[in-house]
Simulated assay, not measured.
Amino acid sequence: MSKSMHLSLKAGERIFINGAVLRVDRKVSIELLNDATFLLENHVLQVEDATTPLRQLYFVAQALLIDPGNSERARAVYRDLHDVTVGTLTQEEIASGLKNAAEMIEAGRTFDALKILRSLFLVESAALTTATDIQPIQAA
């Protein structure tokens, strides 16, 4: 038997459940009584915010939840983008997180993959800032 999930939503907030978009008109608590894939609005990344490799991966992964009808295509894009990102971001914490996120995606645990990717945003930001702060050495 699956466990239930309690969610609280504010007035006007949206939630994506199994590909459907729901908006509530007042503060409400809902209980999901069976397994469902869902994404809260405040965890949805907009396309214009997918500006780094990890955010792009996150954007593609969220498509698996928001648009399950195109999940095979999104999964293929995720795999390709993941392979490129692994070669680009080599920090140990990021590499480990990417491996774990990929395993979650393949196991159908997209929500867990999104949590992993979201937790790496600050690490990625620091890594990208450090990489852009390094000035080339000029020969004398």
Rank of each mutant, 00 (worst) to 15 (best):
4 S>M: 11
6 H>P: 11
7 L>D: 05
10 K>R: 13
11 A>S: 15
11 A>G: 11
11 A>L: 04
13 E>V: 06
13 E>P: 13
14 R>K: 12
16 F>T: 00
18 N>H: 01
18 N>Q: 08
21 V>Q: 04
21 V>D: 02
23 R>K: 12
27 K>A: 12
29 S>E: 13
30 I>K: 02
33 L>A: 01
38 F>C: 00
41 E>G: 05
41 E>K: 04
43 H>E: 08
45 L>C: 05
45 L>T: 00
47 V>C: 09
47 V>I: 12
48 E>L: 08
48 E>H: 02
48 E>S: 05
51 T>L: 07
53 P>T: 00
56 Q>C: 13
58 Y>W: 08
59 F>I: 11
59 F>T: 04
59 F>R: 05
60 V>G: 14
62 Q>A: 07
67 D>Q: 14
67 D>P: 00
69 G>S: 12
70 N>C: 11
72 E>L: 10
76 A>W: 06
78 Y>P: 07
78 Y>R: 10
82 H>M: 13
83 D>S: 14
83 D>T: 10
84 V>E: 15
85 T>F: 02
85 T>I: 05
89 L>Q: 09
89 L>M: 10
91 Q>C: 03
92 E>D: 12
94 I>N: 03
96 S>E: 07
103 E>D: 15
103 E>R: 14
104 M>A: 13
107 A>K: 07
107 A>N: 07
108 G>P: 06
108 G>K: 14
110 T>E: 10
110 T>R: 00
112 D>H: 11
117 L>E: 05
117 L>D: 05
117 L>P: 00
120 L>K: 04
120 L>Y: 11
124 E>M: 02
125 S>G: 06
126 A>W: 12
127 A>N: 08
130 T>D: 11
130 T>W: 07
131 A>L: 06
131 A>F: 02
131 A>I: 02
133 D>C: 10
133 D>A: 12
134 I>P: 01
134 I>A: 08
135 Q>M: 06
